[in-house]
Amino acid sequence: MKDLKDVAAARIDGLSARLLGLSHRLHANPETAWQEKQAAAWISAELTGVGYKVTRELCGFPTAFAATLGRGPLQLAICAEYDALPGLGHACGHNIIAAAAVGAAAALAPVVDALGVTITVIGTPAEEGGGGKIELMDRGAFDGLHAAMMVHPGPLDVARAEPFAVSHSKIRYRGKATHAAAYPERGVNAADAFTVAQVAIGLLRQQLQSGVRVHGVVTNGGEAPNAIPEVTEGRWYVRAGTLADLAVLEERVRKCFEAGALSTGCDLEIEAESQPYAEFANDEAILDLYVANATALGRQFVSSGPDMRMNRASTDMGNVSQRVPAIHPYIGIDSLPAVNHQKEFAAHCITAAADKAVMDAAKAMAFTCIDIARSSPLRSRLIGNTEQVDPLKETVDVH
């Protein structure tokens, strides 16, 4: 007879080569939002190998999946992310997230019946701007779940997710091309429209409340230096503390883009890249369990200082947390001074410290799921008092 956490830990340790191999393989083959074909296939294969039933192309999305094991009334989800950043590869460490999710799922496979749980790993594409979780949630992928979790890498261990709400927009100005030297007066300069808009945004910042963010890039500034640019394009993010604050801020930023169109005579098009990402609602009881388990594994959490600010980064997991009790802690990979979304951070995501983060995150999530299942008050809150099984078994036979 072994304690369930001992069983889970041994399972993860026994699969270390496969888990770290998966992490490194994903890192070496980065795929951007909605293009994660290899990643989804590799992760699905690993989950099939540890006993999970995998549904591919979940909700009609080619690179989404769900892997399920168990028949218990308590429905717990572990979210896997695996998309990379354009031009930066896995500079946000989603290879670590995916491998840790597989590890936690594998650890729980031998004990789901003893715990009275059903475990589902949801493969969620396009976190980096595409809002994959929101799209999946709208199509029912998170229906019936009682709690959800994932662990995200950063420079340091930070327990609480406190992300900005964010909107992602494509901006396009349409003007009229002409020869820049011979007939400049016959053109309508779409590049000037972006210049005016960016100046207006820069001036707006001094009137904005502390903590909001407005930032973006021009992805197409024109075709040739001797032609007045006819079409220019960019991508812009607007961030605020809550969705309500975001709606107010977005309107002010929109007027800056309208100023660019008005002053130059261009036509303006603003297209949402995804639905807005929401702020995060941490489930405090589940988070306390995670912190206790991670601390027992030797993780040391920080709660102040500029190096911990990865916990402010926006995530579509925030939208999940508004509907399902959830946590989204951060696990450190000892990368400083490198931080997320730098090429140096990408290099750190396959170091020994990153590999340890995979193993520790897998164990901490598995242990947290076990503690959730063993806690009668927490089970009652999550699913009610209708179940007639004993979920509080402390031991399980392992043959």
Rank of each mutant, 00 (worst) to 15 (best):
Leu382Arg: 02
Glu344Gly: 06
Ala353Lys: 08
Ser335Arg: 04
Cys369Arg: 01
Thr351Cys: 12
Gly384Trp: 03
Met359Cys: 12
Lys343Thr: 12
Gly384Val: 03
Cys349Ala: 14
Glu387Thr: 05
Ser380Glu: 15
Ala353Asp: 14
Leu336Met: 08
Pro337Cys: 09
Ile383Arg: 03
Ala352Gln: 15
Val389His: 15
Ser335Gly: 06
Ile331Ser: 07
Thr351Gln: 10
Arg381His: 13
Arg381Pro: 02
His348Thr: 04
Ser375Ile: 10
Lys363Gly: 03
Glu344Phe: 05
Arg374Leu: 12
Cys369Ser: 09
Leu336Asn: 00
Ala354Cys: 09
Glu387Asn: 09
Ala346Glu: 09
Arg381Gln: 15
Ala338Pro: 01
Ser376Asn: 13
His341Val: 11
Ala357Ile: 06
Glu387Gln: 13
Cys369Tyr: 05
Met365Glu: 12
Glu387Ile: 02
Arg381Asn: 07
Glu387Ala: 14
Ala352Tyr: 03
Cys369Val: 14
Ile333Asp: 05
His341Asp: 11
Ser375Asp: 14
Ala338Cys: 07
Gly384Cys: 06
Leu382Gly: 00
Ser375Ala: 11
Thr386Val: 03
Asp371Gly: 04
Arg381Cys: 08
Phe345Gly: 04
Lys356Val: 11
Thr368Met: 09
Tyr330Met: 14
Ala373Lys: 03
Cys349Arg: 00
Ser375Cys: 12
His348Gly: 02
Asn385Gly: 11
Phe367Leu: 08
Met365Ile: 12
Ala361Glu: 04
Leu336Phe: 08
Ser376Leu: 15
Asp360Lys: 05
Asp360Gln: 13
Ser376Phe: 13
Ala364Tyr: 01
His341Leu: 11
Arg381Asp: 11
Arg374Ser: 13
Glu344Trp: 07
Ser335Val: 03
Ala361Gln: 05
Thr368Ala: 08
Phe345Pro: 03
Ala364Pro: 01
His341Arg: 09
Leu378Arg: 06
Thr351Asp: 11
Thr368Gln: 07
Val339Ala: 07
Ala361Asp: 07
Gln342Ile: 08
Asp355Ile: 06
Val389Glu: 15
Ile350Pro: 00
Ile383Lys: 01
Ala346Gln: 09
Ile370Arg: 00
Ile350Tyr: 00
Thr386Trp: 11
Gln342Ala: 12
Ala338Asn: 14
Arg374Ile: 00
Met365Tyr: 10
Asp371Cys: 05
His328Gly: 09
Ser375His: 12
Met359Gly: 09
Val358Thr: 11
Phe345Met: 07
Glu344Val: 03
Tyr330Cys: 11
Ala362Gly: 12
Lys343Gly: 15
Lys363His: 06
Val389Ala: 14
Ala352Asp: 15
Leu378Ala: 06
Asn340Ser: 15
Ala346Cys: 11
Met365Leu: 14
Ala354Thr: 03
Cys349Asp: 04
Ser335Leu: 05
Ile370Asp: 00
Gln388Lys: 14
Ala347Asn: 10
Arg374Ala: 14
Arg374Val: 00
Ser376Trp: 13
Glu387Pro: 03
Ile370Trp: 00
Ala366Gly: 06
Ser380Asn: 14
Thr368Trp: 06
Lys356His: 13
Asp371Ile: 01
Thr386Asp: 13
Ala373Arg: 01
Arg381Ala: 14
Ile327Trp: 08
Pro337Gly: 10
Ala338Val: 05
Ser335Glu: 02
Cys349Met: 10
Asn340Val: 15
Leu378Gln: 03
Ala346Met: 06
Ala362Cys: 13
Ala338Asp: 14
Lys363Asn: 05
Glu344Ala: 15
Asp334Lys: 13
Leu378Asp: 02
Ser380Tyr: 10
Glu387Trp: 10
Ala354Lys: 07
Leu382Gln: 01
Val339Thr: 15
Phe367Ala: 11
Ala364Trp: 01
